[in-house]
Design a protein around this nucleic acid. Structure first.
Lengths: 231, 231
DNA sequence: CGCTGACTTGAATTCGCTCAACGCGTGTGG
DNA sequence: CCACACGCGTTGAGCGAATTCAAGTCAGCG
């Protein structure tokens, strides 16, 4: 039988990489593909955790809110990242597509069962979760100890890197690329306000570090200098 | 043969909880206990990751530094928490005992092997890592979106809770307890400066929310009000 | 008793926030 | 086609919370 997974773009980079054929076909049997429009939500914070997913294409955000309604984005999920909370009662954060996206979703119950029965899959999941924890902790440093300029510099560099090595278009360098986030969303990622983000953008542009051909596009002109700012 | 694990205080709360007898005895065979003095380091950031551990007793901190030497504490590990980075190349953060502590350490190579061969252990590890990731993400909200007052209120409540349900002395409530962190360390946890922490402490005391019998002791006098501040 | 290091307090400064106005591109309706 | 409104982003002015810099204060200890 023909399998989705055979032609899957992230077959060798996602959680599925290195799984045995029988494991893949089990996943293939319980997974289904789903397209998301930009802005569409996949999971709601506090919901019963009904599904998990692999990101095939696009960028999604994970976020929570404070009691007074301010949003904090907890992370971004790019191509080949894993989404959702296996083995838990509720989803601890909301998930929303920032760009049009393409995901491979599993019912939690199905996925949990397959994972428990196949140590290989569970091991993959563990490695990915550990990696995600490391990344999240590094982000804490940014939130806790950096000023606006450093935050934005780091953000731009990370976005640029992630799209370089996860992008299907796989361009190497620093051409013009599309920002998948609005100014407000960038502010929510970095723990800043929209005005501060805007001012920093303007300043970096004036200083010749970046160019902003349009609202949703950036080009990194002086990577070295940006890395220096990111300190 | 007599096993350490039989009498272990965290036998049923740590990663070891619910493991089968043969798995426990394997861990018992490769683990050894170690006492740490307050201030002693167990792991260094960037080191080759040579060991992992269970915290039996005490409080340890996980931390990184910025390029310019400021520290950010990434998390605290209490009794029954798991420490270290299995299946990774290097340790992504330093670990240092804040109080005198008692840990159960494993050589990474040994631990990884046992974990890979025993899905039960790996599953435990996965659950714990997922939980840790959730906790870390909630902390991001604190770092990114809260003011000094909210940060400190949250910190005091969390410390109080953690010692209530992890403490071997297991007191229920809001008596006087010892802070395992200096002002500087609290500042590093919350992404603040030492002066700001001190001022907030003073204010909370003046407002009757807490008492500070000595530098290293706190009592929560008005938990309700503190929870309100923590918002 | 004086020294040391941790903590507190005060004053000045600064960075990012708030509030407010404005600009620009896009879509809609007259 | 123009007028207009709307959403998003930018810019400016003023403010305020937290930082920085600089003195104190206090407890523990030789």
């Amino acid at each position: 039988m023909k399998s989705y997974c055979d032609t899957c773009a992230i077959r060798n980079r996602s959680i599925c990489a290195g799984l045995k054929d029988d494991e893949i076909s089990l996943l293939n049997a319980i997974g289904r593909r789903r397209r998301l429009k930009a802005g569409e939500r996949l999971l709601w914070e506090g919901d019963e955790a009904v599904l998990v997913a692999n990101v095939i294409e696009g960028v999604l955000k994970l976020s929570t809110q404070t009691a007074d309604g301010k949003e904090q984005i907890l992370g971004l999920a790019h191509s080949s990242d894993f989404l959702g909370r296996p083995f838990g009662k509720t989803t601890p954060y909301g998930v929303e597509a920032l760009t049009d996206a393409y995901v491979c979703v599993f019912q939690r119950a199905d996925f949990d069962r397959v994972a428990r029965e196949h140590a290989g899959l569970e091991h993959k999941l563990l490695e990915r979760t550990l990696g995600e924890l490391d990344r999240t902790r590094r982000w804490m440093l940014l939130l806790g100890r950096m000023n606006a300029e450093q935050k934005l510099a780091n953000f731009l560099l990370e976005m640029s890197d992630r799209r370089a090595n996860a992008g299907s278009t796989g361009e190497p360098g620093d051409g013009i690329w599309a920002l998948p986030l609005s100014r407000q969303q960038i502010a929510d990622v970095l723990g800043l306000t929209i005005e501060t983000v805007s001012r920093q953008f303007t300043r970096m542009k004036k200083d010749g570090l970046i160019d902003l051909p349009s609202r949703r596009e950036v080009a990194i002109l002086d990577r070295r200098a940006l890395e220096y700012l990111a300190a």
